[in-house]
Structures are given as structure tokens and as C-alpha cells.
Design a binder for these strands. Structure first.
Length: 375
DNA sequence: CAGGCGTGGAC
DNA sequence: TGTCCAAGCCT
């Protein structure tokens, strides 16, 4: 075990990522073994990093820390402001859970394990996992990063590295318990922060999903997949389920004053809590104009005249693909009702930037602005 | 426990 | 171009 740890850590000292801002002291210096780091920024970062690459997270993390510099600021923030800062990052339940977790921590409503004396941060796996949106891997990552405590991690990078190390014959999802044991066995109890970060950096930069750079890998002499001659074959993947495709009719409804109608989605589920232009699924054999009229009648209780097309765009979610066919509409009658949303609102086009929208709607807004600018 | 849950980078 | 998939969690 010691040789593997030493070789990985030696590689990491030379080639690891050492400029990650939340893993440094405020003055930019690296923490020594056992030295604590500020837990708040690490907690925020680890949640942002769930299923999201480091380069994507960095600008979001900096904006978030400027807006909500500490736990109290986040707990006191509105959900609207929280979603504004998360807009475009995806998996929006993470933002709502981070917000709820901040309020739990401020209220002291978490299990034992914190240091006490005004320090709200848990020191145990159970303490962190009691917070919404924190599972075992994120909890282990936070505890090792912030406090240099010996807790293992098992994200996608680590699963891939370990699956190759032992040439595991099946999908890791089916044998997670064994992978957790392996991650715990390998973990360097003297330097858990550095070891976990090294393992992730190895997966992100060397032991990559495609064309791994085995020539520079510190574990190449120990790697069963390399010995088998085909490291790219691991980890073995499950066949992904088919992704459904749907056409969505969307109305950008204007009133006589030039305001447009938007609604806030329900608090849970897909894009929960974000704002959007109203619309819905096209039914078989239905013209898209009829879809838009029907959906606005069913979900908002309004009657509109469907005008020209503004834009058609395709958007892929993790579990479905949609084509949005967006038409400009004129409001005719009916006070808009939030029959399938939290609330509806008439807003001037220049006010749209103060609402959190999902990525597909941001493209619709860009098209609308271009149309308005063109007259 | 299999499926819901976003977005953009990389090739 | 399409396809894969990333520092997972929740139900």
C-alpha cells in the first residue's frame, strides 16, 4: 500500500492541480498537513462540483463567494438571489439544498459532531450527510479538504481509476461497496487531503475516460487494465436507456404595453423554481400553433393569437431531448392564472435579466432581444 | 433501486 | 455533426 500512496503523492506534487482557490489559504499559500481550511467555500465548491467539471465551476464559485461571502449571508439570502447565482450551472436542486443547508446550520439543527463554540461545521460523516444534497462522497471530500480528516471519496474519477487499477469486469455502479472499501484501503491516513486530491487529479488529467495517458501514470506498474493491454475498456459501462424526444410549443405573449408573460416553475422537479416562457408538449397530429393556444389556455387560462415564429431550438437534458418551437403571441383575454406554476408575471423585456432562466430560455430571450432591436 | 435531474466541454 | 460524460444525490 505504501508504494502506491508514495508514487501517487510524488506525481501529484509535481503535476497536480495546486491553484484551486478554495484549497488555498486566503493569501494564496498551500495548507500544511492537518491545517484546516475555511469550510464554507469548500462546501459550496463541492456541491457545485457534483457532476460538473472544475473549469465550469470556477467562475460560478467566484461570483457566489462575492455575493454570499459566508454562511450567514447565504442563510439570509432569498431563493430568488440564490437561483440567480446558480443560473446556467444546471441541477438546480443543488442550489435549493445548499440554501436549505445553510439555514439548518445557522439554526443549529444538525446532529452532533461540530467543534462547538460557534463553529457550525460538522466533523463527522453523519453530520455532513444530514445536510440536504450531501452524500457520502461529497461529505468525505469536504472533511478531507477542509480538515484533512481521513475520509474516502468515490466520485466518477475515482471509480474510473480504481476500475482500471483492478480491471473490474462489471459496471462499478453494481459493486459500489467494494469500490468504497478499495478507496478507504488506499487512502493515506497521514495525508488524506493530498491523497484524495491526487486521486481526483489523476482521474481528471491522466486516467481520462478516453485515451488515458498511461505513459505518465504513476500507477502504471500496478494497473491491471494496463497490463491487460486495453485500459480504455474500463470501467465497463451499462447500456444507457433510450432518450425520449418531444416537441414543445412555447409562446412569447405580449400585451398592448409591450410587456411579456413569464411564469415561475413549480418548486420541485425539472428546473424547479426557475422562470420560463409558458408552453407545453405537442400532441400527435397537432399543429404547433394549436399546441401553444391549448397550453396557454390550460396552464394560464388566457386566450392568445399565435403569430410568427421567433426561433426554433433543440436542447438536450440528461434524460430527454426537446425541440422548442417558439412563436410570438398577442394576448387577447383572461387574467393569467398560475394553474401549473408558482406564479405568473407581466414584465418589460429589459427586466428579463433580473429573473433566473434555464439555458434554453436564455436563448429565447436573446432571440427576442435581437427581434426587438431590429424593430 | 432505477430513474429523475442540466449544462457545456471534448473529440 | 453526434456522443459521451463530468468532483452525485434523492426517491
Amino acid at each position: 500500500m505504501e508504494p502506491l500512496r508514495g508514487e501517487l503523492l510524488a506525481w501529484w506534487e509535481r503535476d497536480g492541480r495546486h491553484q484551486i482557490p478554495w484549497k488555498l489559504h486566503p493569501d494564496g499559500s498551500r495548507p500544511g498537513p492537518g491545517e484546516p481550511l475555511a469550510a464554507y467555500g469548500i462546501w459550496v465548491a463541492e456541491v457545485m462540483l457534483q457532476q460538473t467539471q472544475l473549469a465550469v465551476v470556477l467562475p460560478y464559485w467566484h461570483r457566489w463567494m462575492a455575493a454570499f461571502p459566508d454562511l450567514g449571508a447565504l442563510a439570509a439570502a432569498s431563493e430568488h438571489d440564490v437561483l440567480m447565482l446558480w443560473q446556467g450551472l444546471g441541477y438546480y436542486a443543488r442550489a435549493r439544498r445548499l440554501h436549505a443547508g445553510a439555514r439548518q446550520l445557522v439554526a443549529g439543527a444538525y446532529p452532533s459532531g461540530a467543534a462547538g463554540h460557534g463553529d457550525p461545521w460538522p466533523r463527522t460523516l453523519e453530520g455532513w450527510m444530514a445536510l440536504p444534497g450531501i452524500g457520502r462522497s461529497t461529505a468525505g471530500s469536504i472533511l478531507s479538504s477542509a480538515f484533512d480528516r481521513p475520509f474516502a471519496i468515490l466520485d466518477g474519477n475515482v471509480q474510473r481509476v480504481l476500475a482500471r487499477l483492478v480491471a473490474h469486469p462489471g459496471p462499478p455502479k453494481r459493486e459500489l461497496a467494494g469500490f468504497w472499501r478499495l478507496s478507504e484501503t488506499l487512502l493515506d491516513p497521514q495525508r488524506p487531503r493530498a491523497f484524495n486530491q491526487a486521486l481526483m487529479d489523476l482521474g481528471a488529467g491522466v486516467c481520462t475516460p478516453r485515451q488515458p495517458a498511461c505513459g505518465t501514470c504513476p500507477w502504471q506498474p500496478h494497473c491491471a487494465a494496463y497490463a491487460a493491454g486495453d485500459p480504455g475498456r474500463f470501467p465497463v459501462k451499462d447500456t444507457p436507456p433510450p432518450v425520449p424526444f418531444q416537441v414543445i410549443g412555447v409562446g412569447v405573449v405580449s400585451d398592448a404595453a409591450g410587456r411579456v408573460l413569464i411564469d415561475q416553475r413549480l418548486p420541485e422537479g425539472l428546473l424547479g423554481g426557475l422562470w420560463e416562457f409558458p408552453g407545453g408538449k405537442q400532441e400527435p397530429g397537432e399543429a404547433i400553433e394549436a399546441t401553444i393556444q391549448r397550453e396557454l389556455r390550460e396552464e394560464l387560462a388566457i386566450e392568445v393569437t399565435v403569430g410568427e415564429e421567433l426561433i426554433t431550438l433543440e436542447h438536450a437534458y440528461s434524460h430527454k431531448r426537446l425541440r422548442f418551437v417558439v412563436h410570438l403571441c398577442r394576448w387577447r383575454s383572461g387574467e393569467p392564472q398560475p394553474l401549473a406554476s408558482q406564479q405568473v408575471r407581466w414584465v418589460a423585456p429589459q427586466e428579463l435579466s433580473s429573473y433566473p432562466f434555464p439555458a434554453a430560455n436564455a436563448r429565447i430571450i436573446a432571440a427576442l432581444e435581437a427581434r426587438l432591436a431590429a424593430g
